[in-house]
Simulated assay, not measured.
Amino acid sequence: MKEQILNEPLIDIGGFTHSKVPKKNLQQFETVYIDLTKSEEELFQKLHRTNRKQISKASMHDFHILVIDKPTIADIRAFQKFYNHFAKFTNTYSCNSFHINTMSKLKDKNALIITQLLNEENEVLCYRLYISDGDTVFSLYSASHFRLKEKAEEKRVLSIANRYLLWNNILYFKKLNYSIYDMGGVTANENVRSFKLEFGGEITQVYSGYEANSLVGKLVLWLRTIKLRKG
């Protein structure tokens, strides 16, 4: 999956999102691929038993899932606000102007999809944001306000909601004849690693990063690194 970030003739920067092809200057990562060509029953049986149980429980809640396949900049901004509130309490990077600009470019290429899960009061409980090329869908962001809830029951409902949204997204992309659901990078965090593997996919080696083919492009990538450090 390749995204051309800038189109000016003197700036040739290719953004590679978990490419399976090794290439100079790209870093090797592990991700989890879910094979969407399998039947729904096969996919469900490959889930960890805890996930199967929680997804079944979630179906008894009055949850509503919204898929925004043609997001506007307002939709992206709403996601940014929700995500940054989440990032503040999880010690992770915020979604800054560089990320918004990148998402806007993806939106313009019809390569960005946003999904939400809402409760019966129309409160957004969790988000997932994807990059799509029509065959592979890559999970770029996910966020819920799990850590902001104080009551055990509220935390339990959010845990169920998060898994339910992910499972329904898998089925959504399967119905659209996608071949691969990419769970995103598998980090050293055991909780994150376990969560992703419990959805039944296979660990796959991929290569990710940005590549500059000109001096100007290298300068742009250097400025990008500075921006990311500043948040």
Rank of each mutant, 00 (worst) to 15 (best):
L66F: 11
V67T: 04
I68C: 12
D69N: 07
K70T: 07
P71Q: 10
T72I: 04
T72D: 10
T72P: 08
T72Q: 05
D75A: 07
I76G: 02
R77D: 15
A78V: 00
A78N: 02
F79Q: 11
Q80G: 05
Q80A: 09
F82M: 14
F82Y: 15
Y83H: 04
Y83E: 02
Y83M: 08
N84E: 00
N84Q: 08
H85G: 07
H85P: 11
A87F: 02
F89L: 12
N91V: 09
N91F: 10
Y93K: 13
S94Q: 07
C95F: 09
N96T: 14
N96F: 02
S97W: 00
F98H: 13
N101C: 00
N101K: 15
N101W: 13
S104F: 02
S104D: 03
K107G: 03
D108T: 13
N110Y: 11
N110Q: 01
A111T: 01
A111G: 00
A111R: 05
A111D: 01
L112V: 13
L112W: 01
I113H: 12
I113M: 02
I114P: 00
I114F: 01
T115H: 06
Q116C: 01
Q116T: 01
L117H: 01
L118M: 09
L118N: 13
N119V: 14
E121P: 02
E121R: 05
E121N: 08
N122S: 12
E123Q: 14
V124W: 01
V124E: 08
V124Y: 03
L125N: 07
C126L: 06
Y127K: 15
Y127T: 11
Y127Q: 13
Y127D: 13
R128E: 04
L129C: 05
Y130G: 01
Y130E: 00
D133Y: 08
G134I: 11
D135N: 14
D135T: 15
D135K: 15
D135S: 14
F138W: 03
S139D: 12
S139Q: 13
Y141A: 13
S142G: 15
A143H: 15
A143Q: 15
A143Y: 14
S144I: 02
H145T: 07
H145K: 15
F146E: 12
R147V: 14
R147H: 00
R147A: 05
L148D: 10
L148S: 12
E150M: 15
K151C: 06
K151L: 00
A152C: 08
A152I: 05
E153Q: 09
E154A: 10
K155R: 04
K155C: 05
R156F: 01
R156H: 13
V157L: 15
L158V: 05
L158W: 05
L158F: 05
I160L: 10
A161D: 03
Y164T: 00
L165C: 00
L166C: 02
L166Q: 03
W167N: 06
W167V: 04
W167E: 06
N169A: 09
N169P: 06
I170F: 14
Y172P: 08
F173C: 03
K174S: 05
K174C: 07
K175F: 08
K175W: 02
L176D: 03
L176Y: 11
N177E: 04
N177T: 09
N177D: 06
Y178V: 02
S179H: 08
Y181A: 08
Y181K: 14
